[in-house]
Design a protein around this nucleic acid. Structure first.
Lengths: 136, 136
DNA sequence: TTCTGTGCAAATCTTTTGCATGGCA
DNA sequence: TGCCATGCAAAAGATTTGCACAGAA
């Protein structure tokens, strides 16, 4: 589904500003507010920060976009299938990792008698590259 | 270990203000900044918000206190053993759940060639009570 | 025309800093 | 005395809101 359809199917108009934000999230995987502001400014010098906030909040409410609460600066991404976020505390890299979390969450559901909503689990790590540096 | 010793062993003076914050975290399990501010005010009407921020940041740096990044308002807790946070999106309850996350994190480490640092994994859920309400 | 979305500026929070004061080793 | 910690006020940042205008249905 194109980003245009994604917006329309959530009764949001496909404005250039919204598409621009979605394109950035698609290209970068995840972006902070600063990232979004910097990149959008190149295309739309007049695009206002309040529009970014407003649109992100709307798209989060509709479930099109998700917030990633792992670093102090929050990141945003286009909502997608169950996966992991691996954030390297050493080099600051934030990556998606394709991993079905079901078997983990199903176990919790059984033990705690609850329904787990997360499609995403966030983990702080030291990444492969940084581990290699340690061993040198 | 008492909170006094906890502070001293991290070369922080055990001031009444710091102890008050730690007591709150101990009593509540987790508290937001608002919680901390409201409760400390009862005991120390003059305790300033900047002192709370400064102390929390220091204690986070030393690893005595951890931030919980799950809701929009961040929560704080006294650092402890590996466990889960279950946050009910419906009623807003945030609870600890005793669950060893090792088998999950070990699997990720193998697959992604990384070291997982988390002692804590955050999950958004619908809790047992709220599920019951649905079925009525 | 009627809505919805945008930009700008102002208002409101949140968080951090600078500095003078106070208390404890 | 010499630190370290605090309180207060100001500064800096982040986020939201009000309003008038612009553009698409």
């Amino acid at each position: 589904m194109s980003n245009i359809d994604l917006l329309k199917s959530n009764s949001l108009k496909a404005t250039p500003q919204r598409l621009c934000v979605l394109d950035i999230l698609e290209d970068c995987g995840h972006a902070t507010l600063d990232d979004i502001q910097t990149i959008t400014r190149e295309k739309f010098p007049t695009l206002s920060i309040s529009t970014i906030y407003r649109n992100l909040n709307e798209m989060i409410e509709k479930g099109i976009v998700s917030e990633i609460k792992i670093t102090r600066k929050q990141h945003f991404e286009i909502s997608k299938e169950k996966h992991l976020h691996l954030y390297c505390k050493e080099c600051g890299k934030l990556e998606d990792f394709d991993f079905k979390t079901e078997s983990f969450t199903k176990e919790i559901e059984k033990l705690a008698n609850c329904k787990v909503l997360n499609d995403v689990v966030n983990l702080e790590i030291i990444c492969e590259d940084c581990l290699k540096k340690h061993n040198k």
